[in-house]
Design a protein around this nucleic acid. Sequence first.
DNA 1: GTACGTAATG
DNA 2: CATTACGTAC
Lengths: 259, 259
Amino acid sequence: MLRVATWNVNSIRSRKELVFMWLERVPVEILCLQELKTETYNFPFLDFERLGYKCYVHGQKAYNGVAICSKFELEDVFKGTGDAKFDVESRVIGGRLKDLWLINCYFPHGEERGGTKFYYKLEFYDAFCKFLEKNFSPSDKIVLVGDMNVALEDIDVYDPVVLKDTIGTMPEERQALRRLLDWGFVDAFRYLYPNKVEFTWWDYIGGAIWKNQGMRIDYILITEPLLKSLRDVFVDTWARKKRQPKPSDHAPVVGVFEL
Amino acid sequence: MLRVATWNVNSIRSRKELVFMWLERVPVEILCLQELKTETYNFPFLDFERLGYKCYVHGQKAYNGVAICSKFELEDVFKGTGDAKFDVESRVIGGRLKDLWLINCYFPHGEERGGTKFYYKLEFYDAFCKFLEKNFSPSDKIVLVGDMNVALEDIDVYDPVVLKDTIGTMPEERQALRRLLDWGFVDAFRYLYPNKVEFTWWDYIGGAIWKNQGMRIDYILITEPLLKSLRDVFVDTWARKKRQPKPSDHAPVVGVFEL
DNA sequence: GTACGTAATG
DNA sequence: CATTACGTAC
């Protein structure tokens, strides 16, 4: 059994206590983190090593930053996509576990429609697709996880009317994410639960978590060769509902595989 | 028995947990606080009320701020000294308990010799003396407590050679503080313990508290009519030595009176 | 070394 | 609403 989790922790320094509390509850084999918000040397390597994790970290000061913490050594670890324009930010890390590729990505937020950051988000998705096409094949076993900052369909937001044309729900963004699916990825959660309404992110503002006013923007995407191994995907809201230590605005999403 | 404590807490918001832990150890009747570093409306009135304290608070955003928390109601509470030049900062609060005047003051730090803030410190002492002369008499029963930011004598610093001409130890500053004594105040700690070497402040930097490299800059000054009631003065380093919650750089000083 | 305000980001 | 950087103060 291989459990792969993805969690935008919104700063690993202020969240490490919570992360380790969570790992006691759900001791996943592979934990993919986004928004470390700190440089690699500040990452709590030792705490993870004590629990038997080897950490592959692509940090950045203040913004972004991604890591894969794994119970098993990874090979062919890479950071970034090779596109110099986007690799100035630390958003992508990946590696290989035998014949299984793991890719962890923090896609841009986008801020609001029409702005520089919005187009940056769409172009980033473009560049990411090119990176896939160049380096992988849909017949490879790939688990692509992360904060995609897009809710794929109306079922993935608490109120599509209220959220119409807000960031993460717009057609251009959905199309950008859908291109990953068209290439060969399957949204593991939606594959298993076609009608389930669950979210992975809730705004800090206004106690959105308590009204379950969220969005599903964190994903576990897998290629077809992995479909037969997929056993479950679940969102654990425990950490998001903690008051002390303070939570990230994202909840961890866990994929369970039998390989 | 009346116990009067003075404590520069270096932000009441980040220190309130520690303050209440300390009050369980040493439940003083009157607690005078300096460097609240927040406006009056942020003061934890309710937590103090739960313990039976009435609070008189003269707050200020980010800097300064003083309060008297008392088990007994005070009358004739005043804030500032009446000198408009210095009353733009919240450094003084006082009040009367029957025939006993309580004055709590956070004297300026001074930064370094020769600068604007250094002269501001000396002028503040001047203004404070004038305030005393105008409103009080040495034959009144007065307890003046606070962070004076001056170590009166060489015995009041851990190394007078190392600290020579550093802020808080300079002749001009000592003379400024001594003018309060000349007016009619007695340094209660030194009165009881002429040769005792104790400190009330230790720099955060370099773990000064663990080497006891400190200075005695927080005082309980009393007028002569109170001398016969004075039973003890002690510095409680417990709170300064705590690691969690984080300590202020000052320790509380407690005066014990039998009135 | 610790804490605050401000501005930027999500 | 919660995080970070930076500047300021002690």
